[in-house]
Nucleic acid binder design. Structure first.
Lengths: 144, 144
DNA sequence: TTTAAATAGGACAAAAATATCCGAAATAAA
DNA sequence: TTTATTTCGGATATTTTTGTCCTATTTAAA
C-alpha cells in the first residue's frame, strides 16, 4: 500500500507525537529503537518530515524531534503520506494506465475509485492524536 | 497498490480473455502491443500465469495464449494477483509491522482491515468475463 | 573554551523490482 | 525436411527503493 519509507515515517511521527504529548523531545536513536526501524534510513525520512513542517527538529546536544501539541491534534496521516509518497495513492490507476478517468476508464476504474476513496477518507480524517491514544494504554503497538 | 508485474498481468489476462471469447488465440507480441506493456517483461509474467493455470500457452508457429471460455467466466482477479504478488495484499500490516492482528494491532489496524476487505472482496468477485464486457463496446480501455 | 551529543546532508552500497537479450525447444506450414 | 514462428527459460542489465557511512554543523553543558 505505502512505501517502506512511508511506513517508517508514520511510525516515527506517531512516536514523536506520543512523546511530545508528554512534553518530551525525542532523539533519532530512540525513535528508531521504539519503532523498530533502521536508524540512518529513518534519519532521511525525518529530514523530509522536518522540511514539510510535520515535525520540528532541534540540532545539538539535547536536541531531537518534537511536534507542538496543538499540531498533534491537527496533523493528518494524509499529510505524512503526501510528504513521503506524494499523491500517487490518490491519482494512480489500479491497472497502471497513464490516463484513467471516468471518461476513459480501465475495466476496474469505478471499483477502484470506491476503495481509494475509502483509503483517502481514512487518511484525511485520522490525526496523529488519534494514532497515539491506544499506544498510551497498551492497546496498540508501533513495533513487533 | 499492485506491483507493475501484477498490473501488466491483469491487463494481459484481460486481453487474452477478450480474444478467447472471440475464439482467437493471441501472441505475446499482440498482447504487449494492445496492453502497452514491455514485450519481454510481459513474457515472463505470462509464463507465471501459465504455470498457475490462469492462461494456456501453445508453443510453435500459430501458437500463443488463450483461456478456455468457461474459465473466462470463473477466473477471478484475486487469482491473478495471488499468482504474481502473493498474499501480501491480504496479510500485510498497513504500517509494515511483522505481526499485526486484532490481539496486538498497530494504531490503524481496524481501519485498514476495512479497506483491505473491500479490496479483497472486489478482487474475489470480479471475473475476467466482467473485465472484458466494457472493452468490447469501447466503454473501457486497456491502454492509454 | 572545549567537549560531547545531536541533526543535516552528500556520497556511497545493497537489494529488489523492472526490463532486456539470446539460445533452446516446439510446432505449423512451405 | 526445411523454414518461419512462437513460447520457454536462463543470464544479464537497468532502475528504483532501501539502507549505510561519514563529515559538517549546531548546541548545551562541563
Amino acid at each position: 500500500m505505502f512505501s517502506k519509507a512511508c511506513e517508517y515515517g508514520i511510525r516515527a511521527a506517531t512516536y514523536i507525537a506520543l512523546q511530545s504529548l508528554e512534553g518530551k523531545r525525542t532523539s533519532l536513536k530512540d525513535i528508531a529503537k521504539e519503532t523498530d526501524s533502521p536508524v540512518a534510513f529513518t534519519a532521511k525520512i525525518l529530514q523530509q518530515l522536518s522540511k514539510n513542517k510535520i515535525v520540528e527538529s532541534v540540532k545539538g546536544a539535547s536536541g531531537g524531534f518534537e511536534i507542538q501539541k496543538r499540531n498533534v491534534q491537527t496533523i493528518k496521516l494524509s499529510q505524512i503520506v503526501y510528504a513521503i509518497d506524494g499523491d500517487k495513492v490518490y491519482h494512480g490507476c489500479g491497472l497502471g494506465l497513464k490516463e484513467c478517468n471516468g471518461a476513459k476508464p480501465c475495466p476496474v476504474h469505478d471499483k477502484f475509485v470506491g476503495i481509494r476513496d475509502g483509503l483517502k477518507n481514512m487518511l484525511e480524517t485520522t490525526t496523529l492524536l488519534e494514532m497515539t491514544t491506544g499506544l498510551e494504554v497498551g492497546l496498540t503497538y508501533l513495533k513487533r
